[in-house]
Each structure stands twice: as C-alpha cells, then as structure tokens.
Amino acid sequence: MKWNSAATLALLAPSNVLALLRFPCAQLVIDRLDPLVNPGQAPSPHLHQILGGNAFNTTMDPSKDMPKESTCTSCQFSEDFSNYWTAVLYFKAKNGTYKRVPQIPNSGFEGVNGGMTVYYMQDGLYNFQQTSKVTAFKPGFRMYIGDVNARTKEQMEKFRQLTYTCLENINTRDPQTLDFPTKPCKTGIMTALRFPTCWDGKNLDSPDHMAHMAYPESGTFESGGPCPASHPVRMPQLFYEVIWDTSKFNNKADWPADGSQPFVWSFGDGTGYANHAGDYLFGWQDDSLQRAMDSPCYQNCPTLKTQNAQAMNKCTVKRRVNEDIDSWVKELPGGHQANYRK
C-alpha cells in the first residue's frame, strides 16, 4: 500500500512562502531510556534516539518546568526545550548479527549531527501559507504514537500516515509505503511520522499517552478534516522526518539468504508495520510556540531565537545505560531478535 505525499518542500516552496515551521534537531543522545512509556526504568526495554533539551532523564517529572530545567537544546530554535524521540533502526546481516543504522541530516540542514527534522503546521504540507489558527501544546503536555506489537497492515492502519520512503536522493519524497522497502535504497530510508492533531481540551496526558488526542473525524489534517466532538481542540500537526543512512548496507550479498529485507527496529520488528513512530514531551519556553503558530514563518522565524548547527551539535548528554551500540552485535540491545510475527 502506498501513500501520496507532498513533493520535496525545499524545492516546491514558493519564493514568497510565509509559513511552515520546519527545523532540524541534532542528536542529543542514543540511549535505552523512555521516560514516557517506561518512566524510571534504566535501561528501558529498547534503544531510542533522543533530541531536544538536555534536561532529558529517566522520569521527566511533568510537574517540573522543562525549559527552566534545561541549559541547552539540540534543536535549531533555542526556545524549544521539548524532547523528541523514536526507536532506532538496525541492519540484520546474513550471518544473523546486527549493526545500528546511523542518521543523516535532511535536505538543507547539512552540518547537523544526525537527528531528524521536526515540523509544526497549521494546515499541513501542501498549504505553504498556513493561515488556520491552532492551539499550541501546553506545559506538561506529552504524547506517543505507534504500536511496537503491530506486525500486519491492519494492525498499524489505525495510526494514519506512518510511512517509509526509499530515497533515490536526499530530496525523494514518493512513493511512501506502510512497510519497509524491499530493495536497496540508494541514499537511505526516510521515516515520516505524523501525530494526531485533535485534543480533548482537558488532559495533558492519558494512561496510554494517546487517548487524549485523536485524528480528524473525517479526512486528514492536511485536507482540513474536522475534529471529533470528543476532541474539539485543533492543535498543530507535529511531524517528524528521520533519514536513516542505509546506503552502507546496500550490498545484497550481505542480506538474508532468503532475499527478505534486512532492516529491523530496535524493539525487534522486522516487518516495518510497528514503525514505533515517536514520543513527544512539550518544552517550548513561555508562549514561544504559540507566537510562532500565530505569526507563521518558514524555517527562519523572526518571533523565535535561532542557533546554528555548531550550537545544536554541542548540546548532548551522557548516556545513562552503558552498553555497546556501535559494534556488530548478536542481539539487539535489551536482548531482542528480529521478529516478523506478533
């Protein structure tokens, strides 16, 4: 199954573009921590790549003021001390060993250390004017998207628009698929991760970290679909793009002998359907995100303070869990093996 998408934003955006908050975040740390799903656990069950404010820790107490706890951020906008994280991609070789796949910066963000591209949008990718009004996330807000146990298309389709793109070059955006590409990808694999956009207006979190948010009642955020009555507050579209440099693993002689695709998520999913999309902890300083949503801009925003790639790359934290994440290993961190069935 394939999704249609917007073509490369950097190429198609009109010269007088007014809006589309799009920015890079460098890698803060790669660690086996997940304070949203597994608070207090070190190590958490599987490995994550984490970005944003350096106050990131094993618990992330929601009663604390995250912006004031952090002293730096790995994101371009220096008022954004939020934390963003996803699972990590691995390559499984024919001999059964695994190697972590590194990340590379998106088009236009050269010099940023891995990480990913983050979007906050009022009207979706196609509308560069971004004229709709949205309510920014509130202090203490957090959410999660994905299902680590999904192994079929039917199981993952409740999460809309979690996709993969096999990159011919850094600007490739189509076609998008719901499962892993089955052929070598010249430049890498991009995962596109779109969060739900309708809030219940009351809860900053929920037991599963998803129920306080919902997708539009019909259509999509991009098509202007209305929010359901249970979740009436329209919030920004939070959207991650992560580019995994799978090009170093394109020699099919190293792929599994049966010809199956060789990539697996750090929690063991080898189908791609689990696409453990992402976790989000809001941490913008004061009303900076709402200001940006009310005064739309594209990348360079006069209402926000911007830092360069050197400053982003400098903001890191020491790993809490001491384990080998760079060598070839016989099992994924946490003892996982590639799993193709639920």
Rank of each mutant, 00 (worst) to 15 (best):
Q76V: 00
G224W: 07
T177C: 00
T306S: 11
A211S: 15
D254W: 12
S206P: 01
A93T: 09
Q130S: 07
V329D: 01
Q130V: 04
P39R: 05
Y144A: 11
P139L: 01
A311L: 08
Y98I: 06
P105Y: 00
D123W: 02
K138D: 05
S230H: 05
Q290L: 07
C227T: 04
I145P: 06
H48G: 02
F263Q: 01
R100K: 14
W3Q: 12
K342L: 14
S78F: 03
D208E: 03
T86Y: 04
A7K: 15
I189R: 03
P24W: 00
Q285H: 10
K138C: 03
W265F: 14
L28G: 00
T97P: 07
E154D: 13
G278C: 01
T177L: 02
A214C: 04
N4P: 10
M143L: 12
R100H: 05
K183D: 10
G219L: 02
F180P: 01
I145K: 13
P62H: 00
R319L: 03
W265N: 07
N54S: 03
V242S: 06
K64V: 12
A192Y: 12
K158F: 10
S5M: 11
C198T: 02
A6G: 13
D123T: 10
F81L: 12
E222W: 06
P236H: 01
M156N: 14
L332S: 06
C315W: 01
R142I: 00
G108T: 05
N113M: 11
D286V: 11
D179T: 09
Y98L: 02
G335N: 08
P181K: 03
D80W: 01
Q41T: 13
G270N: 08
T197L: 00
L304I: 04
Y126G: 14
D61N: 14
Y215L: 08
Q290W: 07
A277H: 08
M293H: 08
H46I: 09
P43S: 05
N95V: 02
K305Y: 08
W3V: 09
L12T: 15
Y340R: 12
A42N: 11
P105T: 00
D258M: 03
C297R: 07
V317Q: 05
S218A: 12
E168S: 15
F221K: 00
S107H: 13
S107L: 15
N16D: 15
N83A: 01
K186R: 14
T163R: 12
K64Y: 11
W265H: 09
S260Q: 09
A93W: 10
A214S: 12
A311P: 01
I145C: 11
Q103K: 11
A211K: 13
F81A: 09
L9M: 14
Y119W: 09
V17F: 06
K99T: 15
L167A: 08
M190P: 06
